[in-house]
């Protein structure tokens, strides 16, 4: 059994009289420990797939099993609990809470778990050290660079030790140097911690860090799996 299994996964929206189907009958399996890049033009269904994998959106039909758990049948509250344990999500625009320090932002997901203050502190400090921000505990997001903010966001995604990390254009708002630093960090975390990492990107260079790149177009997979470094070059759409 694969770590992620999608069977005939479909997502349809209705806007007035129009029906939009960003994801059509998708079949996909992802093995545990894979670093997968999802590429494709805008509107191809990349982010929709990522949202479904994160359990923040529900498919219109099909099955979605992650680590043996069918998540399409979970209630809203159960899905929230599942997310707090099983998924770490990295956003393009970081989405840190501006009134909390770097330390507090990273600690935030741990407050959903029954951990002692001491244990929370240990995990938070360790994770911030892991992303190279051990000296930025008390800094607020506005006091950090874009690259540092994204590192805090990555630490927040990792701190609960989820098996699945999802990243939506994690370098999309960064300059080239910061983007390279973030991708190097994600690749190292994937390699050292063995997490399953699914990343949406427009940037072929960013996709080269992945083990596998899949292309989506009009809600369907259009290319076979390719190993990261050999991924075809593509213009960002």
């Amino acid at each position: 059994m694969s770590f992620v299994e999608c069977r005939a996964l479909e997502r349809t929206y209705t806007r007035g009289d129009n029906t939009i189907t960003p994801l059509r009958a998708l079949d996909l399996e992802i093995e545990q420990g894979t670093f997968l890049a999802l590429m494709g033009p805008s509107g191809s269904g990349k982010t929709t797939l990522l949202n479904l994998l994160a359990g923040i959106d529900r498919p219109s039909s099909g099955e979605l099993r992650i680590d043996g758990q069918e998540i399409t049948t979970l209630s809203r509250a159960a899905l929230a609990r599942w997310r707090s344990v099983a998924v770490g999500y990295v956003f393009q625009l970081y989405h840190l809470v501006p009134v909390l320090t770097a330390y507090e932002n990273v600690e935030l997901p741990l407050l959903l778990h029954d951990l002692s203050r001491k244990e929370r502190h240990r995990r938070t400090a360790l994770t911030l050290e892991l992303v190279g921000l051990a000296d930025r505990h008390d800094h607020y997001p506005r006091q950090l660079s874009g690259g540092q903010e994204q590192r805090v966001a990555i630490a927040r995604a990792l701190v609960t030790d989820p098996q699945l990390i999802l990243a939506d254009e994690p370098t999309g708002d960064l300059d080239a140097e910061a983007a390279k630093g973030i991708m190097t960090l994600l690749a190292a975390l994937h390699r050292d911690l063995g997490k399953t990492l699914v990343m949406v990107t427009h940037d072929p260079k960013t996709a080269t860090f992945a083990d596998l790149t899949l292309h989506l177009e009009k809600g369907r997979l259009v290319s076979p799996a390719t190993v990261g470094a050999d991924a075809p070059a593509e213009g960002g759409a």
Partner: peptide
């Protein structure tokens, strides 16, 4: 709105 959405992504009800 985005921040409140993010909190839900983290698992807050």
């Amino acid at each position: 709105a985005r921040e409140l959405g993010t909190l839900q992504v983290l698992g807050y009800l």
